[in-house]
């Protein structure tokens, strides 16, 4: 398996789309930082306006995290979509699968390598977003709470990655990518509906969100990460108010569910790949 991990990491380093993703991420951070700069410049860090700045700063922080989910999600789908299917389509899998490597090692090796890359990417991105807010808006938060939030958030790309890799072991690259992204969108909408339901006190809407989280717990992981990170923030109640926040916080059992979910889907991907004629 270690050979597949090394090879996959080398592949990631050489992928042009990854290079493009990194450039786009830097552009995103530049735009985000510029936005924060002008917000601070207009409000100024004095008196009542400082309180307003803190409130806006927290909202922008959560907005930054939320936008980051799309970037991290896209990265996970892009890397996972072709992980198996593209190798089948272009024939490189024949060399790998005819060697003494077990098919399960191929899947697990790729998952570990892509998982490390996307988790690392997500933690760097979220840290950068927090760092920019810390610098411009001088937000007050406990670094350990924020780190715990980022750690929880690392499960976010893994849930997307495992779904995408399962699809990749079943379908073509295009179908796998589109299907995974559609599932991602469904869970995002489900998360929105759940938050609105919580604000309205509507149980039916909350249940819709819970069902979509069971389908794919990515949004629940995001909400849990935000809840963890914002719990130590002075203005966390403001953060919680809104569709990007945690008006309805998922149970911590969702973390256990997410880990089991990743394990089950990874086993399904291995099973499908082992049964596949190449």
């Amino acid at each position: 398996m270690k050979h597949v991990i090394k090879l996959t990491l080398k592949e990631v380093v050489n992928k042009r789309i990854i290079h493009l993703g990194i450039i786009l991420t830097l552009i995103y951070l530049l735009i985000y930082g510029t936005g924060l700069y002008y917000t601070v410049k207009d409000l100024g860090p004095q008196g009542e306006q400082f309180f307003l700045l803190q409130q806006i700063g927290y909202q922008l922080l959560i907005l930054g995290w939320y936008v980051s989910t799309f970037m991290v999600g896209s990265m996970a789908v892009i890397t996972g979509a072709g992980s198996i299917s593209q190798e089948i389509e272009n024939g490189t899998i024949l060399g790998l699968a005819s060697s003494p490597l077990k098919r399960s090692s191929i899947i697990l090796g790729k998952f570990i390598a892509y998982g490390v890359v996307t988790s690392l990417y997500s933690s760097i991105l979220l840290t950068a977003v927090m760092g920019l807010n810390l610098y411009f808006c001088r937000l007050v938060f406990d670094p350990w709470g924020a780190a715990a939030g980022i750690l929880i958030f690392m499960l976010f790309p893994l849930t997307l990655l495992v779904v995408t890799m399962l699809f990749s072991s079943l379908f073509s690259t295009m179908t796998a990518g589109i299907s995974a992204f559609m599932v991602f969108v469904v869970t995002i909408i489900g998360g929105f509906v759940e938050q609105i339901g919580a604000l309205m006190g509507n149980t039916a809407l909350i249940n819709i969100g819970i069902i979509s989280s069971l389908l794919m717990p990515a949004d629940a992981v995001y909400r849990l990460a935000v809840a963890q990170a914002s719990s130590t923030m002075a203005q966390s109640s403001i953060v919680n108010f809104g569709p990007f926040g945690t008006a309805s916080t998922p149970s911590t059992l969702m973390l256990v569910y997410t880990i089991v979910y990743i394990g089950v889907l990874l086993s399904a991907a291995v099973y499908c790949f082992e049964k596949k004629d190449l």
């Binding site: 090879l7 080398k10 592949e11 024939g91 490189t92 024949l94 060399g95 005819s98 060697s99 003494p100």
Partner: peptide
């Protein structure tokens, strides 16, 4: 079998390799 693959070599008809190596 994995053991057999150690003793077998194979050149597929649709050969393609990682072209970034």
């Amino acid at each position: 079998d994995i053991e057999v693959r150690y003793k077998t070599g194979y050149l597929p008809e649709m050969f393609r390799f990682y072209d970034w190596l």
